[in-house]
Nucleic acid binder design. Structure first.
Lengths: 262, 262
DNA sequence: ATATGCATGTCGCAC
DNA sequence: GTGCGACGTGCATAT
């Protein structure tokens, strides 16, 4: 069974044993987990000391390092990927020294006792997808207006119109004004009523024909009827699709595309 | 030996065994490490999926959760401290579900195979000290005003002046008021403009001659010109030097040195 | 290479 | 609780 290769674990090893495993795993670029009592010294952009206590050290294949205390989401000390490691066994201490080149930074983890050391060969090719937030959906539509419909041209976004902010604002292929309300999740009737309020507010100011389009991955149960009653439209759009659009060209400076005023 | 209590490790356990250990460790508020093949789903402020692969899951005593891939400094998924956990064993899957209340967020980790599971009782009371933060630079200047310039006498610090807080506030050797803005890193133009806003705000209140001094280890590219244009000054100061000054007299409670009001 | 803006940012502190 | 700024922020991208 090749589990043997995947995983090596020692509990309460002698320090010399632990050091040997760590050094070998570093050479083989395996992932390392060490649990034990240690002190940590950092110097670089700033400087820190962490007095002895029991923590978890993780060293990854790519040369990143994490020291985690038993409390708190963030690592207390770390080193980003690409760090270079040295292991030194002194009298009663194993020192793991991680060096980052630019900027020059050092993290030294000194183990006085090791409760567990583990060397792992992890195989992870699973795709990670982060779906868009609502604001990202706005940006995606501005980036690629055809997501809304062919011929749509955005004019402004997050425009103040008194009840609040209109998500996206533009002109369709016939020159008709279009007000767009975006929702990341299935839209309920609040979304429809919100859009209706914007439409009314804008109509009151400029008496011009308007289209209102609700953009969301889906519509709630009785929302369809309400939408039609109010003369509004619906366009299905998946946040995932937006994320994909943005991936191509992520930080277009939309702030400069449209003047805030108009 | 009470190492037994500190540490429990199983390698290649059956899923039901792994689930049992995780549930027990959660109940006892111990730190948990699980290594195995899993899929991860997140939904909350945004939404993400992570297809199956081999990763490290850490759950800490305080209810924080981390999922680490074998590459990368940052966790691919996480949940901050205070999350509530549920473990469910289905047919061929163990699901760890972490819920954060506010904002409402869910992370589900579904294990198809567990290579190692470990429950730990970590004891960590070691003090962590970070040197040379921006606030410590303030304190260093208050401690040793000559770091700014000879004859400088601080009056107040972190004083509210409407756009925000002035870092340090004092009088120079000629009795002229000095407003000091401190940056730990090379100062950009935002720092200069921030200082200028403070100066303007204070001038508006008390029509008295003011000097504005930007303190930082260095100045950004075109910042020098802007500084001069606005009639402000620059004083180079290294955070590390500040740390050294503070080391001499570490726990002076500067809060009591100056009354907040004046 | 540096500069700019975003992040499931997180965290701490003041109001 | 809510808001605001700092962070060894990290990270991705445009210049």
């Amino acid at each position: 069974m090749q589990k043997q290769n995947k995983l090596k674990v020692l509990t309460n090893p002698r320090l010399t044993e632990a050091a040997a495993i760590i050094e070998k795993a570093l050479a083989q670029r395996r992932t390392i987990i060490v649990v034990g009592e240690c002190k940590v010294l950092y110097s670089g952009r700033a400087k820190s000391t962490l007095e002895p206590g029991e923590r978890i050290l993780i060293i990854k294949e790519d040369g990143s390092l994490l020291v985690h205390r038993p409390i708190g989401y963030e690592p207390v000390n770390w080193q980003p990927s690409g760090s270079v490691f040295h292991v030194q066994t002194k009298a009663d201490v194993v020192e793991v020294h991680a060096v980052r080149q630019k900027p020059r930074e050092n993290v030294r983890v000194l183990f006085y006792e090791v409760f567990m050391v583990s060397a792992l060969s992890l195989n992870d090719s699973g795709e990670f997808s982060l779906y868009a937030s609502e604001k990202e959906m706005h940006r995606a539509i501005l980036r690629k207006p055809s997501l809304l419909e062919e011929g749509f041209t955005p004019i402004s976004y997050e425009k103040k119109v008194e009840p609040g902010f209109v998500d996206v604002y533009g002109v369709d292929k016939d020159g008709k004004l279009v007000v767009v309300e975006v929702k990341r999740k299935t839209a309920g009737k609040e979304a429809v009523l919100q859009l209706a309020r914007y439409i009314d507010a804008i109509k009151a100011k400029a008496d011009r024909e308007l289209r209102g389009v609700l953009v969301a991955p889906g519509l709630g149960k009785d929302v369809q009827r309400l939408l039609v009653t109010l003369g509004l439209e619906f366009k299905a759009l998946d946040p995932k699709k937006c994320a994909k659009v943005l991936k191509k060209d992520q930080n277009a400076k939309l702030e400069t595309f449209f003047e805030e005023g108009k």
